[in-house]
Structures are given as structure tokens and as C-alpha cells.
Amino acid sequence: MKKIYTNATEALDGLLHDGMFIAAGGFGLCGIPELLLDAIKDAGTKNLTFASNNAGVDDFGIGILLQTKQVKKMISSYVGENAEFMRQYLSGELELEFNPQGTLAERMRAGGAGIPGFYTKTGVGTVIAEGKDHRDFNGETYIMEEGMIADLAIIKAWKADATGNLVFRKTARNFNAPAATCGKVCVVEVEEIVPVGSLDPDTIHLPGIYVHRIIQGTHEKRIEQRTTRPAA
């Protein structure tokens, strides 16, 4: 069992094809798989559908794949930070499916957990509910949302061991854990690969069963909005 690869291009070898569906972790620019996104750009894979909470900014994150017109469709909850995204969307070059943020996370979690659909109150009475199955439970109306299974999940974690056990850091965990579970194959990029046995088994956030390929690399970790308070 070899899960560690030397770089992002090698880790994605044989996994990419035009028209595929990729689930990506990250919230805004926090915890995004920046090295794997770069490698997908270099690979030139086209007509991609991405399930990702956001679409990056123009020159970072999924935004770099919009510049090269490799993305056909986004499934996201919020896409406000990206001018090129808006241009392509308004001109009809890019499809967009809005999912409420919690519905998107649960679609990933459910897909990875073998649950093809679930009922939620989120979106009842809104455009999100149009065309979806409605059902009452205990006097309240819910809509059915479908679990999501992606051809590939690309995620970012803080530390991994060689078996793929992962530890995330602070709010960079976000969509990385649910996205990982919904991929038929999951590739993770980490800041540090540590020896097997050095992670406390009680503190592992995502067990290695969900992780198939691992790379270690140097991350830019760009900050989207740097907010500070005066020093006391």
C-alpha cells in the first residue's frame, strides 16, 4: 500500500478525464487544495464540474481554472469574490447550481456515507425547493436533497501519516472532511507528512480509509480579508 506521491501531478496521474465531477474542500481561500488545483490547471482537463463552497478569487483557488476555461459547472453556496466567474456566468459560458451551504456539506457527507437522499427544512418555500420531493414529518414540511458522489475529491489537511490518517488545523477543516468522503478517489495535500504512530489515534480528524493519495508541499495559504484590532 503506497499512498505517498512526490508531487501533485504524479498524485493525479490516471485520475483526470474531461467532463469529470470533482469535489473540493475549502471555505473561501481557507483550506483549499491549492497545489492540486494548480496541477489540474497544468493537466488541462476540461469540462469539469466542481462541487466547492466557493469558486476562489480570480488568480487563486478554483479561479485559476476559470481563467483557463476548464470549468463547465460549479455547485456552490456563495461565489461573490470572483469577477471572472461572474463574467463567464452572465455570458452563459459557465453553469451554476446554488446549494445552501449546509445542504452542500450534507450532500457530500451523505454521499460518502452511502445515503442517496435526505430530507431537510432548508430551502422550503424558496426557489431551492422547486421540483424537489416534499414530505411532511411531524407536521413540518421538508424537501429531499440527494447525496453526492464525486469522481474525485481533492482536499487539504495539515498533517497526514503514510496511511492517510489526517489532522486538520482550525477553520481550515471546513468542507475538507465531507468532500473527502464523497470522492470515489480522494487525493490530499498536506503541510507535513509525519511518521506512522506519531499521531494520537484519539485526535485523528479523518481516518485514512477515506484517503488514497497524499502529497506534501509548500502552501501559499493566502488570506482573503486581513482584519485586525489595535494592539492593547
Binding site: 473561501g28 469574490e81 480579508q225 482584519t227 485586525t228 494592539a231
Partner: peptide, 20 residues
């Protein structure tokens, strides 16, 4: 609260994507 200058952490943001 927001961090003091120099303590910003790219892994620690709120839902508005601000450093906290």
C-alpha cells in the same frame, strides 16, 4: 475578536472570510 496585527492566521477565519 480580530487578531492584533502580526497574529493573523490563514487557517482561522470567520464566515465573512475575515481573520479572527
Amino acid at each position: 475578536p480580530f487578531p492584533v496585527e502580526g497574529d493573523e492566521d490563514a487557517d482561522l477565519i470567520n464566515a465573512g472570510k475575515q481573520t479572527i
